[in-house]
Design a protein around this nucleic acid. Structure first.
Lengths: 204, 204, 204, 204
DNA sequence: AATGAATGAGTTTTCATTCAT
DNA sequence: GATGAATGAAAACTCATTCAT
């Protein structure tokens, strides 16, 4: 019963299935067949719509990056102070839709993929760069530039580290605790920088 | 005339080859054949000595973990103060032999492998646990237990994050800069915890 | 509002596209999808009109055979002497529309197809038979029947050989030079047969 | 029961099987699986020894070219006069091992393959060039250079044409009749060139 | 101790073909 | 009349693994 306009529906279904399958299986072991089966279509259709397994994986990466950006924009609008903006940026990385075990697993695969795919590497650099500039921009308004960049760098690595460790843990994720670790890091680094002035923390 | 005592030599050669091959190829794409070729033996021999590809990968993990422990013990002996011990623990993770691009790539593969292999997961938890207890033990002597654990947790995640990001970068690694990031983190967290007392930093 | 009489238009468009596509791609690698795309229609339509890929290829063969016959009839009308008729028959095979690189490639495919398809084999035999009888008929008026058939046989093979070799060459085809080769062959064979009588050559 | 030194045996068996399979099936439709099965091995082994289907096909081409050269050398040694040499060159192309239906089919496939593979094209040009120079060299000693090349060119095309037509016929091949066609062609062309002098024909 | 030989099972990918609209 | 949707079947190719020597 083929209906018209299925393309975007199928594409999204396949991307969702890719994320789920990556999570369940041991990451890179995912086959197009498994993904397609989970999406309820034939593997031939997956190729029809994406052209290749690689393209499907890359589209999945792009989708997650877009989601991250969307999450961030939505939350950033409400921020008043620079410190608040920093908190929003941090929090955006641990949104339920982002810190979902399946999504975290997918990110890990992307990091591995980046070792061999130039395009995957580029996408991850875009992500890292965007995160860095978002944080650094807000930080520059609170502390000096050199320090702002150092903190942004550290926070970025810390977020990645929490992700990778999350992938190892079983049970449901604990975004709040992860957020606290990063917030503490930022607070501590800022406090050390300006030991006297009190910093207003945007967290509720 | 079969040589005696070849087993340990071959095993080590294959483990070394596994690390190098993982680095050169796109990570998980490594085949037993590639590893064996680089080690200068047949793939059949790799199976003879390890039983399976999985066992070879796990042995490689164990080897790197042992190396890390060895590096740590060697450097820890000279530490006088708790803060110095912390610095030594951090530094042990960025030893040239550890922060080598090939080794970093291998770690990434292990994280992926851990998603599907219980034994790999166990090994990574052993590593994380050992790192955590080493740091927490020293930190408990400087700050309160709750805070000590939080800092140890953060430092561990930060180290992992720096590793994963290192894998994305091209060029030679910069261990000193990575060490500084973690040291700053610890310093800042400790400073925030005890704003008055001066902390002795074991770094030269 | 479905258009009326689209069938012949679509069929011809698909046949033309088949010839072009066979030429551009590596011969037999042509897919129905490629042909349909070049014709500006969906592959489903190609099946609608031809029933199968095989039928499309066979229709393309039939079309080229018909063209050859048409070319021949047009030119044959003006022939006065038997020798002139022979020249016209030869020349018909090297008409710009026949010796076009795309058409030559298509013929090659047909020969291959003939290996596995009885119908394709039959069509090629029809072509060979028609060429032979055309030549032999005219030749019989100049030389004895046995020799006439031998010359016709050789000329046919020579024409095929020039086609197959043309497919290997790059650059634009050189019909005149090919025609000369066959004409020389016929002249020489006739001269050997009747060393005394002068042969009138219909070529300009 | 794996024995040592199987590689050359398997390679040759696969090449032989390729020729046979190409003949039986519809040429290009041959799959590695079919060839391997006929050779009594797995398709994986075919890939192991040749690397790819293309490489197997090309090796088969090279083998047939080498055989042709070998056949030629063997027969050429006994030639005394230039005309005899020409006859030997012609005959070498219709040796039972060359004009075998399976081999003829294979050649046709090579011609098709040449359309898309540069290496296959190169090999066929080598063949054509060698045939041409062999013929032209002997012809130059009997007639003028321009004519020698023209005759060599025509003879080459004629041989190819006879091959391609042979592929269409059923039943056992008739090498003698094909040889006669080419010999007549050469005789006739030479006679026309030097209508007076008698040419000694090397044929028995 | 070591390996060349060999393969089964599985992977991506392609394509002719069908069908509901 | 025309097509987007969808797939089954089969292709090339890969690879961990086994085994006789």
């Amino acid at each position: 019963m083929p209906k018209i306009g299925m393309q975007p529906i199928r594409r999204q279904a396949l991307i969702d299935a890719a994320i789920q399958t990556i999570h369940e299986r041991g990451s890179l072991e995912v086959t197009v067949g498994q993904i397609a089966k989970r999406a309820g279509v034939s593997s031939a259709l997956a190729h029809h719509y994406f052209g290749s397994k690689d393209a499907l994986i890359l589209s999945t990466m792009r989708y997650l990056l877009t989601e991250l950006t969307t999450d961030l924009r939505a939350t950033l609008a409400a921020a008043r102070t620079p410190r608040e903006r920093i908190s929003k940026v941090i929090r955006a990385n641990f949104t339920p839709s982002q810190f979902d075990p399946a999504v975290v697993s997918a990110w890990l695969v992307f990091y591995v993929r980046a070792q061999s795919s130039a395009e995957a590497r580029r996408l991850l650099r875009v992500y890292a760069g965007r995160l860095h500039s978002n944080l650094a921009h807000a930080l520059t308004q609170i502390t000096d530039g050199r320090r702002a960049h150092a903190i942004a760098e550290g926070a970025g690595a810390l977020i990645d580290g929490l992700y990778i460790r999350r992938a190892l843990k079983s049970g449901s994720p604990d975004p709040e605790s992860a957020i606290q670790v990063v917030e503490h890091f930022v607070d501590a680094m800022l406090a050390q920088a300006q030991p006297i002035r009190e910093i207003s923390n945007g967290r509720s």
